[in-house]
Design a binder for these strands. Sequence first.
DNA 1: TAGATTGTTAATCGATTAACAATC
DNA 2: TAGATTGTTAATCGATTAACAATC
Lengths: 215, 215
Amino acid sequence: MPHRNQMPAPQPTLRRLPGYFRFLQTLAEAGETTVSCTSIAKALHLDPTGVRKDLAFTGIIGKPRVGYSLLELRDAISSFLGWDDIREAVLVGTGDFGRALLGYELFRERGVEIVAAFDVAPDLVGQKVRGKEVLALDALGDTIRTRQIPIGIITTPAAAAQGVADTMVEAGAKAIWNFAPAVLEVPEHIILEHVELVASLAVLSSKLAVRASAE
Amino acid sequence: MPHRNQMPAPQPTLRRLPGYFRFLQTLAEAGETTVSCTSIAKALHLDPTGVRKDLAFTGIIGKPRVGYSLLELRDAISSFLGWDDIREAVLVGTGDFGRALLGYELFRERGVEIVAAFDVAPDLVGQKVRGKEVLALDALGDTIRTRQIPIGIITTPAAAAQGVADTMVEAGAKAIWNFAPAVLEVPEHIILEHVELVASLAVLSSKLAVRASAE
DNA sequence: TAGATTGTTAATCGATTAACAATC
DNA sequence: TAGATTGTTAATCGATTAACAATC
């Protein structure tokens, strides 16, 4: 009856789902077969009612007094997040940060496979970094276009990010995952996720400053 | 009159402040001397009233019709976020991701200096990575204790993260910046910031799935 | 002066939390 | 059965957005 699959989940819910998935995975490895919201909430420091609401978005239905079927729930989350089918991605900028993402095995398990890396540095082009071939930036647009790659990952310096994004958009990429500290201008239909390490640092930093002044 | 400095800013505000700082910096380099909320909001795709409220937390006061003094505002943000005085940090886990953070020059400008790195791999210990000395994990507690280091950065695999956090807390660290995909248990007085790349990926991924099913 | 912009108060919106009936 | 747990409706909370007087 519930057409939950169609209902778009709010961003806070989406951000919590991977945590649930990870916890369920460890329970599964420990041989458990069912799980309750209460236990999930306790392990992840969340409110049980909130967890229940989050899980409802995946369309899963639990049994009163028993809880949820562990594997069923885990798989529902996985499918809801689009982790079941692999989507290809390209990464631009093979600095330290780009390398770290290229080598991050977990992405593949989460439905994203980086198929090629791009850089302007001529000495890197043609080489392999973390098992992925590095191509010249000139080839970025054509690669996305001919292979119909939906995701572009930007790990360039801030100054280069907008140009790279423009090329990605123009070549037909559907989503951009931006790690460069820059606000990107993209058409409205493009999905844009921006990871701002400095934003996270600011929270920590300012809390530390408040604490220091209180002492 | 306004004792804004003491008022703790909400987390969304804290996360936006670095973006304002960055924009003001580029305006300053372009030779501007004043700035209005309207222009900040437009550049960062935000609401002008929201920007005004955010800036109020820094204690700065603008002039109607003119805007804010650019440098004054920039410096107020910097000081509000605790970027003016350097705080020392240690980093544990010199994998790809750890290296990327070790080499990230920007942190120093944002008030955080990584003074040492730690790893369990014997062949790395004693070497320098990105200019920082790598010490044996055994020495973590003592280093934090004797040098009174306030910040611990965790870039280990998930399985090692809790143990590292325990050592940091026990040695007197005040804040932990966790990049490992694990929920850490720490005493309430410890400031804990968790960067979850997979949470950001989940948002992108699920939007992509929604878009795909709509086509 | 007229008009742009600030600062503040009020209204809206959305997410979190609380309350509670249904049920295995 | 009794009690734990689900699913849902209502209440609370906090942040965003709108409205508007003050002012340079």
